[in-house]
Simulated scan of single mutants.
Amino acid sequence: MKINNELLTKGFIVAGLMNISGVLTFSRIFTNPVITEFDNQAMSNFGLLMIVLWGFAYITVSKNFYNLKWLVAVFTLEKLIYATHWTKWMTTNNLTDVLEKDKMAGIFYTIYGINDWIFFVFFLFVFIRLTRERLN
């Protein structure tokens, strides 16, 4: 199956929209204190704002990612870091505690790492593809 650049462009846009809409929705536009309470390092309001900015970065390069192989590598690494952080968080915290305190925060913690793992694989795929194309 050949995946064309138009489909990959849509992947970058979806990745960006997931970051932006996910953070803004579940944080209630940065007013949900429960998200920051349970991970005040990565999920502080500043950290959440940076996630939104990453989302805008994905969208910004969506139409010319094929010229930005090393930036795609940075996106890959960024998603790996967040996904790994989430996996560690899930193994050392009780999600039920978050859900009982605030359903929106609990849903956020339930899904954000899955999203990051999915887009880590996506960005890795794109990076590998761009690397192989440059070799040919």
Rank of each mutant, 00 (worst) to 15 (best):
92 T>K: 09
53 L>D: 01
6 E>H: 12
108 F>Y: 13
64 N>M: 01
116 D>R: 10
1 M>E: 12
136 N>Q: 15
49 L>E: 01
98 V>K: 07
75 F>N: 02
89 W>R: 03
31 T>N: 10
76 T>M: 10
10 K>H: 10
71 L>W: 06
114 I>T: 14
40 N>W: 03
106 G>H: 08
79 K>W: 02
122 F>P: 00
75 F>H: 00
23 V>K: 13
9 T>Y: 05
16 G>L: 09
106 G>S: 03
57 A>V: 10
83 A>D: 02
63 K>G: 01
86 W>S: 07
64 N>F: 04
136 N>S: 15
72 V>P: 00
118 I>D: 03
15 A>H: 07
34 V>N: 06
56 F>W: 11
61 V>I: 15
130 L>N: 02
124 L>R: 10
16 G>K: 05
47 G>S: 03
16 G>V: 08
55 G>F: 03
64 N>L: 07
43 M>G: 04
77 L>H: 00
106 G>V: 08
96 T>R: 14
127 F>V: 09
52 V>A: 02
19 N>M: 12
41 Q>F: 15
25 T>D: 01
130 L>T: 06
6 E>Q: 15
74 V>Q: 00
30 F>S: 09
108 F>I: 10
88 K>H: 13
59 I>D: 00
22 G>Y: 08
13 I>S: 02
84 T>N: 06
4 N>I: 09
65 F>D: 00
